[in-house]
Simulated scan of single mutants.
Amino acid sequence: MVKILNVKNLEKTYFSGSKSLNILKDISFSVEAQETFAIVGPSGSGKTTLLGLCAGLDRPNSGVLELCGTDISKLSEDQRAKLRNEKVGFIFQDFQLLPTLTALENVAVPLELQGDKKAIVNATSLLEKVGLGNRLDHYPSQLSGGEQQRVALARAFSNKPDILFADEPTGNLDTETGDKVINLLFDLNKEIGTTLVIVTHNIELAQKTNHILKLKGGSVVENIKLT
């Protein structure tokens, strides 16, 4: 299988004055195309930092990080932004919807910015798939947490990304709502053929994936392929 994400000897250290904090230490792993992959570990283990590096939102201090066949550690910020726009989707714990836009607009605007002439039609179709066909004109403040995350799901899949990064996608949801969102996430992922990388504290969620990477203290302590 093709490796869509390849990480070798990754290090991330933050500096403050004369002090340094080594967040990630010699991290190596790879993710195959269309794999579902979970990054787990206790709070402070470096999960979210690692996700941000893999998605090109931040730079490592050293190591190789290949995303969609490109060594992103060597790209400029503009080049990384272009790669993210074309190849990458995101889902965040706090939804990150634009409060002044309706559900439909939150999904359609990114498509319009990419020149999609059927942005409204395609956004409507995605929202119908996540069960929000009757909530198109509602603003985020008029939607429940679960509904907001379903809008975020539709938006994340709107550009049919090669890889989607989800950071604690059920962290702000109750168990029942979270389960519904996860089922939708996996269903859409399978339908579109995206690679899914999830950071989660939820072991049950992690066990739904093909592959689990466990961090502790900024280091890999387990790398288990389940299927």
Rank of each mutant, 00 (worst) to 15 (best):
I4Q: 02
D58V: 13
L24R: 05
L101C: 02
E112V: 13
K12I: 09
E35V: 09
L24I: 07
Q79E: 15
G56D: 06
V199I: 13
G178K: 14
F165I: 13
T100F: 04
N172E: 14
V197Y: 02
E11S: 03
E191N: 05
T70R: 15
G217E: 14
I91Q: 06
T209W: 01
V64I: 12
V64F: 00
N159G: 02
V40A: 01
I224P: 00
K160F: 03
Q142D: 08
D174I: 15
H211T: 10
D26K: 13
A103E: 05
I192E: 08
G17L: 14
V40H: 00
K225N: 06
N106S: 07
F186D: 06
F37E: 03
I27M: 02
G178N: 12
Q148T: 10
L173E: 09
A123S: 06
L185A: 08
L173D: 09
R59Y: 12
N189H: 03
P110N: 12
A123R: 11
A33R: 13
G133W: 10
Q142T: 07
I120Y: 00
A108Y: 08
A152R: 15
E147Q: 15
I163G: 01
K3G: 02
L113N: 05
K208Y: 03
L104Y: 02
A55H: 07
A119N: 08
L50M: 11
S20D: 03
T70P: 00
N9D: 13
L65H: 03
L50I: 10
H201G: 10
I198W: 01
N122C: 03
S30T: 10
I212M: 02
G171W: 08
D179Y: 10
N22S: 09
I27T: 06
E204P: 01
G131C: 08
N172D: 13
N172C: 10
G69C: 11
